[in-house]
Design a protein around this nucleic acid. Sequence first.
DNA 1: TATGAATGAGCCTTCATTCAT
DNA 2: CATGAATGAAGGCTCATTCAT
Lengths: 227, 227, 227, 227
Amino acid sequence: MPTDNASLPDSAPTVAKRSRRKSARPSEIVEAALQVFVEKGFAATRVEEVARYAGVAKATVFVYFPTKEALFKAVVRAKIVDPLAGFKDHAAAHTGSTRDLIMRALHEWWTRIGGTKAGGISKLMMQEAKRFPELANFYQSEVLSPATELMAEILQRGVNRGELRQIDIPHTVMSIMSSLLFLSMWSQSYGLDRPFCGEILSPQAFIDHQINLLFSGIELKGSVSCA
Amino acid sequence: MPTDNASLPDSAPTVAKRSRRKSARPSEIVEAALQVFVEKGFAATRVEEVARYAGVAKATVFVYFPTKEALFKAVVRAKIVDPLAGFKDHAAAHTGSTRDLIMRALHEWWTRIGGTKAGGISKLMMQEAKRFPELANFYQSEVLSPATELMAEILQRGVNRGELRQIDIPHTVMSIMSSLLFLSMWSQSYGLDRPFCGEILSPQAFIDHQINLLFSGIELKGSVSCA
Amino acid sequence: MPTDNASLPDSAPTVAKRSRRKSARPSEIVEAALQVFVEKGFAATRVEEVARYAGVAKATVFVYFPTKEALFKAVVRAKIVDPLAGFKDHAAAHTGSTRDLIMRALHEWWTRIGGTKAGGISKLMMQEAKRFPELANFYQSEVLSPATELMAEILQRGVNRGELRQIDIPHTVMSIMSSLLFLSMWSQSYGLDRPFCGEILSPQAFIDHQINLLFSGIELKGSVSCA
Amino acid sequence: MPTDNASLPDSAPTVAKRSRRKSARPSEIVEAALQVFVEKGFAATRVEEVARYAGVAKATVFVYFPTKEALFKAVVRAKIVDPLAGFKDHAAAHTGSTRDLIMRALHEWWTRIGGTKAGGISKLMMQEAKRFPELANFYQSEVLSPATELMAEILQRGVNRGELRQIDIPHTVMSIMSSLLFLSMWSQSYGLDRPFCGEILSPQAFIDHQINLLFSGIELKGSVSCA
DNA sequence: TATGAATGAGCCTTCATTCAT
DNA sequence: CATGAATGAAGGCTCATTCAT
């Protein structure tokens, strides 16, 4: 028997039943679904729990989303695809150093996605990718590809501007993404409040550390670098 | 309440596969369970499929493992804890450079764990950590803590031996682990045969790249040190 | 898996929406319900489909009919009882031969009931009789009994007038009814466009054939009969 | 709300649970399913009720029949297709008069199919034909076509042997089938214990009456023929 | 009146688990 | 020990029905 001692409260703040709010319902349900999906995984998520958490009846979920899978897709769309859209413009508008741009982007990503419940979706997608190949493709093309390409462009720009040395861009993109996504997954799963190697990890500090490490390696070493 | 007696009934090691021998059954089941758990996740795994993979009847699984959860524990124990045991001695016996030690360790880990089905366990544990906190604690204390401490000791040894500069060891351990574990998860989920940033990733090349990046930052630079 | 490729069009010939005539709504709904009940049966009929077919919202159906069962009753009442009402007077007014009277009655019945969607009601009632005994009793007393009694009277009249020999009236009534009702059900279920015994059946021809068969047996054989 | 005062007893004669009788179970379930399908129709039949009536758990039904539809098909096969197989040989072996052959066949059919619960299947098939076209085709080719062709051959044989005059065979087949099938449906739906036209109908008497009627019409009349 | 929205009550189906052999 | 058979306990999804506007 699964231990099932989830941290979700048994009853959400109940809102007035039968209140007519067609426009509000779907996003409330998506919000609730995000919590439960991230907490339990796709297969183990019960629609009834999503409903309870959203303050509606189970059947109401099916008024807006024909299947559990459709609900899942809606969550991915709302919580990852849409927020990610803004990043590209932000990068294009940046005028400062590449290091600064990357640092801002990573911290921003952490604040808006990785450090929030939405970060749990990366974990989810990785888990469910094989069982839902269609969804995995959707995630690849809508989320992963744009994100990696954006990072590749940023790095290439740094090389072109003489800020970075000639690096292997795909591997470096993977390096950056891996540490960030892993941090997000780790915090979703084990939390950041437990000591790691005897210390409590701070995501901001880790990101800064990562960038230091990274730039100690990829930055052009001139006389200035030690300043 | 399922008891923790899931530890494998001792199985005779390295004898030609004879499905007739009773003592081989449990390990065959664990082997099969590993495949299915990693492929499907805990909740989506059907015991019947595990049994089919192992070539036994569904009820036979329950002869050796009282619950699905116990089976899961046994898999984790057999596929992570035991293989990891050798690493520590290996590290203690090492006499060469720290960089060399780390490189060997990471490649070794990839060959024996990360790149194999066993690597899927990390993914599984991360996904199911909240559903099975008892299991997560077990994994933390039996796997993650030993591994991080080992890596911390290796780094500390490098610092002590004057090979590395004074680095933030916990963050660096996290850096190393994150890239490796993420690579393992990524390959389990999306495979390494799809192009990433236009290239096919090779795990060995990525590990080498990571170590280069890392040591370009943490290695003591001969006389040119900026200190 | 129910193939559910019913012949009902996806969008009914939408009756002029918002037709101001409120009094027309119930009969429009009954008309729509007849189609769907006959097509799908009682249990498999969804009120929503009736509503769509009637061009109203689902809830509107419940404005006029408190339950699905009430709707069913209304359909039976409207489509069977009322049309049948005219038959009795018609028969009473008849002055010609009994054979002619029966022939007219049967063709008339086919044209107005048996050959129309309303004929499906017989099928429906037979199917649902045990589930809705109250409805079955209603149908018995309002439809079947009057019809059989009318036919019995017609036959008796024929005997009295010396047109028919002394026959077993109840059995003969059953004979007449069974062939007609069966033809109606058959056409509702399997259609009359498929060959039967290698021929396409025509209901009119079958009715004539039935009457021939019947009167070759029950008609008084005198010198006149062969004329 | 459906009245649902079915005549099925609430609890079937309970047999020892968990008794190992693989070979017996499927036919027991088919038997139970026949009762309930005929009583309730396909859509309104709950698998749970079939199970209860068969003295097994609901899940047990799904051990033997993957879906409700598969169960339905199994019932048709076991209760109609198989029993019908013997009729053809019986007819071929007949040596007496055509009238006698038909009379025997109809009474036999009534005893073995029409007058039993299996007779309800004709009714069922008619009701569900449109929703399950595949099943309807199966029923047409496996049941209806063989039966009508057999009857057509019998009549043709009678004509060939000079027992019957030149009749319209398809129409006559339909006449015979309609009265018999209708009688079966009628008895399934309304029962034969209620008076019809003031009399209690006996199926045997009705069949005899039908044959009389039929042969008074189609039989060759010795010298008195009106031809 | 008419309806969009919401839901309670089930139903079919699945599956971990039990049990008799 | 192994297993075929059986089942209790859900879970996803449907739909008649209700309610607020």
